Amino acid sequence: MSLIEWNPFRDMDNISREMANFFERSPFKFLGGMTSPRVDVYQTDNDVVVKAEIPGVAKEDINVYIDENSIRLSGQTRRNDEFKDENVYRAERYYGNFSRTIPLPVEVRSEQAKAEYKDGILSITIPKVEPSKQKGRRIDIQ
Rank of each mutant, 00 (worst) to 15 (best):
M1A: 14
S2M: 12
I4Q: 12
I4K: 01
W6C: 04
F9L: 15
R10H: 09
R10T: 11
D11M: 02
D13Y: 11
S16A: 04
A20P: 05
R25K: 14
S26L: 06
P27G: 12
P27M: 07
K29R: 09
G33L: 01
T35S: 14
T35Q: 11
V41R: 12
Y42Q: 01
Y42P: 02
Q43Y: 03
T44E: 07
D45R: 03
V49P: 13
P55F: 01
A58H: 10
K59S: 15
V64G: 08
Y65S: 12
N69Q: 13
N69L: 07
S70C: 07
L73A: 07
S74L: 05
S74W: 09
G75F: 03
G75W: 06
R79D: 01
N80H: 11
N80K: 15
D81L: 05
K84A: 00
E86K: 07
V88T: 02
Y89M: 10
R90E: 05
A91G: 12
E92P: 01
R93E: 14
Y94D: 07
T101D: 12
I102A: 03
P103R: 10
P103C: 07
P105Q: 08
V106R: 04
E107R: 14
E107H: 06
V108E: 03
S110P: 08
Q112K: 15
K114F: 04
E116A: 08
Y117M: 00
K118L: 15
K118V: 15
D119F: 06
I121C: 01
L122W: 10
S123W: 00
T125N: 06
K128L: 01
V129S: 02
E130S: 04
P131W: 00
P131A: 11
S132P: 13
K133Q: 00
G136F: 07
R137E: 13
R138I: 13
R138P: 02
